[in-house]
């Protein structure tokens, strides 16, 4: 690497992605309001985008290096920068014009610390963008997610059903109680506010809906409706269409983790067969994680 000394400094990252729409879908799923500041962290493993709200809700999008057709990472450490999520998504979306080459190259940093994007391989037409980045001002507050005990407290539910249930809970609003109990194995969402609404997912009644269930003792936590809603409000249509499942896990102190899988598969390769779980090559999946803190009073009641 002796030649690098005379050349202008190489960017930290140059990568190419051949499915822009997949990236738009993945990023859109954590866009729960108009103006959101995101922190992007680069590493040799891929790109992670983090958004946070009121110290109660955090979302992460993992774009692993396997999603990219080219991934050249030369930085020391893990560069981080801040960017407006809305602008970033709107901008990438401009690259996913139907009938146009969908391969983009992403580079960071540009001469003025910008994030540089450009379309590649399109004859006679070129799309380019420069997005101003910020020094991330978000306090790096990690949502330490630890298992609640020796055995996991988790369930996997069809994403569409989860979204529908959470949408329905808008009516009682404000605060939603999630109850997991082993006998009978079931998950209950209960809202009390302007009215009462209870939605039960019974494990044995409908195994198509509740795909997996792990719980050895009853737990119950309350979460703010607006945070719960953010976890499914922008779930991409492709996830619903592929009939995927979302995994919800309750950790120590009632911290709720919601995981979605978003396909970043190349659209030109048709999938001859997608089974009911929507299984695809793991390398072509972007992982989305939400962490929701429970409301205070209930958490202490459970820990006792």
């Amino acid at each position: 690497m002796s030649s690098s000394a005379v050349e202008p400094e190489a960017p930290d990252l140059v990568c190419q992605l051949d499915n822009v729409q997949g990236m738009v879908d993945a990023l859109t799923s954590v866009r729960w309001k108009r103006h959101q500041d995101a922190v992007v962290e680069l590493s040799e493993h891929g790109i992670v985008l983090i958004v946070e709200e009121s110290r109660c809700l955090q979302a992460k999008v993992y774009l692993q290096r396997e999603l990219f057709i080219r991934y050249e990472y030369t930085a020391q450490g893990r560069p981080r920068f801040g960017v407006s999520l809305g602008l970033f998504v709107d901008c990438i979306n401009a690259f996913s014009v139907p009938g146009h080459s969908n391969t983009i190259e992403i580079q960071y940093p540009g001469p003025d610390m910008q994030l540089l994007l450009k379309s590649v391989d399109s004859l006679g037409a070129c799309i380019y963008a420069e997005i101003r980045t910020r020094i991330p001002d978000m306090v790096s507050w990690d949502y330490n997610f630890e298992p609640a005990g020796s055995s996991p407290l988790s369930f996997t539910v069809k994403s569409a059903a989860l979204k529908e249930a959470i949408d329905d809970l808008e009516w009682p609003g404000s605060s939603i109680q999630i109850i997991l109990q082993p006998v009978p194995p079931s998950v209950t969402f209960r809202g009390e506010g302007h009215g009462d609404l209870q939605i039960d997912f019974m494990y044995y009644v409908n195994t198509d809906l509740l795909i997996a269930f792990h719980c050895d003792h009853r737990v119950s936590y309350r979460y703010k409706y607006k945070f719960l809603r953010a976890t499914t409000s922008n779930i991409p249509g492709s996830v619903i269409k592929d009939n995927r499942g979302s995994k919800l896990t309750i950790g120590r102190g009632g911290m709720l983790k919601v995981q979605h899988l978003v396909s970043v598969a190349r659209p030109s390769i048709p999938h001859p067969h997608i089974d009911s779980a929507g299984y695809q090559q793991p390398s072509r999946i972007a992982y989305i994680e939400f962490f929701v803190k429970p409301e205070e009073d209930e958490a202490t009641a459970n820990d006792s």
Binding site: A125, I127, R132
Partner: peptide, 29 residues
């Protein structure tokens, strides 16, 4: 905060035309 652009090249021209300057190809839009 952002610059977003698109360049379409080698389009049919009606009216005044000019030759593409040599060495222009590798420049940014």
């Amino acid at each position: 905060l952002i610059t977003l652009g698109a360049e379409f090249r080698k389009l049919t021209v009606i009216g005044e035309q000019a030759q593409v300057p040599v060495g222009d190809r590798d420049l940014s839009a």
